[in-house]
Every structure is written in C-alpha cells, then in structure tokens.
C-alpha cells in the first residue's frame, strides 16, 4: 500500500478555537478514504487542510505536517496554486460557473495557459467522458451549465476538477444534495476514479461511506478516534465511540 498523503500530528485553530487536535492519518494512493463523524467534528476542516483551503479563512493557524508524496505542503516555499491543481476539490452543492458546459471544464485548463483549441477540445471531452456526462451533454456543450440538472452539475464540477489531472481529489459531501439515482451515479464515478486518483470523501451518509470507501476514518471533537479498513469499521470497530456513532446509539 503506497501512501499518497500523510498527516502528521496536525492541529488547527480558527481564532482561539481548536478544531483539529494532533491528527495522524495516512491516505493510501488510489484508494477511497472516507472521513465520517458528527457535525462540527472537524472532518471538513481536515479535508480542507489537505490542500490548504483553510487559509482562505481569517485567523486560521495550523501546526504539524501534511506530506504529499513525502513533501510537507505547509512549508513556506510551497506554491499553493500548484498544490491545489495537484489536490483538487469538489463541494457539497454543485457550483458550476455561470458559463457554458464547455467553458466550465476548460476554465482551469485556460488558467494553466492552454490555448490550443484542439487540445482544449480533447481535454474537455476526455474529462466529460470520465465522469460519464459526455453522452448527456455533447449536443449542448455551449449551453449554460446552470441548465443542467443538479446531478449533472455535480458531475460537471467533478469533470472540471479532474480536467486539471489532479493526483488527489477531495470531495466534501459530493452527493448530499442529489437524488438517489444521481447519488448512485456519483458513487459509481468515485469507484471508477480511484484507478487514476486518490480520493478522500467527507460524508454524513454512513451507508455511502460503507459502499464506496476502502478506508474509513472516524473523527469526533477534533480528534481522530479510529482509522481502519472500511469493512472492519462497519463490522467490528475497535472503539466504543465509533460503534455508537455508526450504529446510531447514544454516545
């Protein structure tokens, strides 16, 4: 098992409030890792720590290391824009730009300086095919992306993220705003994506974590309670806290 991301003794504060407390966690390459835990446990903050998104908040302070392929992304010389290309992110609510389907996917590529029309066409098509959206939108590539259904929009923003060929894909509740069928499509997509990418997903839906992830980390009150292979977490968790959470018991 190859390690893609290694989080070492990582703590995070927003103003004076500590939201992550000495997290140590390994994210294996080409696997899906699910972060689960009650609201406010710090799972989204931990996810954002993996591409330094927390820094966009005011008064954010961190301590410890996050190693991407062995390199600490928190060292001062890190090129954060480059980092966020390598570690892409998709949010809970689909957030396509109010532009055409095509321009949404091409957006990041153009920012990266891709000017060749033919290359852009190829990369847009490839990204849309990877998310299984190509056949649904190829006839309306130049329509506004906001005319797509919510489920299609979510797959579109995943296409926008993977067009940049990231190494890691961070997904924050990617299916919570979607109907069951669209959810299954996104889950199927995540399963396919792990061949090429390392995926980390935050989800409130425990069955979803059980269905799609290879590893599961359970967080509570800013601490990592348990990390193990998903089938172990869902059949014989080591910690009573994990057990209580996943079986819906009073802690």
């Amino acid at each position: 098992m190859q390690t893609k991301l290694a989080i070492r003794d990582f703590s995070l504060w927003f103003q004076h409030q500590q939201v992550l407390d000495a997290i140590g966690l390994t994210i294996p390459a080409n696997q899906v890792t699910a972060l689960i835990g009650p609201s406010g446990c710090g799972k989204s903050s931990l996810l954002r720590a993996m591409n330094r998104m927390n820094e966009l908040m005011l008064d954010c302070r961190s301590q410890g290391q996050v190693l991407l392929d062995g390199q600490n992304i928190y060292q001062p010389e890190t090129d954060v824009a480059r980092l966020r290309c390598r570690v892409g992110m998709v949010f809970q609510k689909p957030n396509p730009f109010p532009k055409s389907v095509y321009d949404n996917v091409a957006f990041g590529l153009r920012l990266q300086g891709q000017r060749s029309r033919r290359r852009l066409d190829e990369q847009v098509e490839s990204a849309l095919k990877q998310v299984g959206l190509w056949s649904e939108v190829k006839s309306r590539l130049h329509q506004n992306a906001l005319t797509l259904s919510t489920g299609q929009q979510q797959r579109l923003v995943i296409a926008r993220a993977i067009a940049l060929q990231p190494e890691v894909l961070l997904l924050d509740e990617p299916a919570s705003a979607l109907d069951p069928i669209s959810t299954l499509k996104v889950e199927e997509l995540i399963y396919e994506l792990k061949a090429a990418y390392t995926v980390v997903i935050v989800t409130h839906n425990m069955q979803q974590a059980a269905r799609i992830s290879d590893y599961t980390a359970f967080l509570n009150q800013g601490r990592l309670v348990e990390w193990a292979e998903t089938h172990t977490i869902f059949t014989q968790p080591a910690s009573q806290q994990t057990e209580d959470y996943i079986t819906g018991r009073f802690g």
């Binding site: 425990m206 069955q207 059980a210 977490i233 869902f234 059949t235 014989q236 968790p237 994990t242 057990e243 996943i246 079986t247």
Partner: peptide, 9 residues
C-alpha cells in the same frame, strides 16, 4: 435499518 457493527453481528 441497514445494521452495522454489533447490530449487524
């Protein structure tokens, strides 16, 4: 209920 852990066992 989709039982898990001890409920599943």
């Amino acid at each position: 209920r989709q039982p898990a852990a001890s409920d599943l066992r």
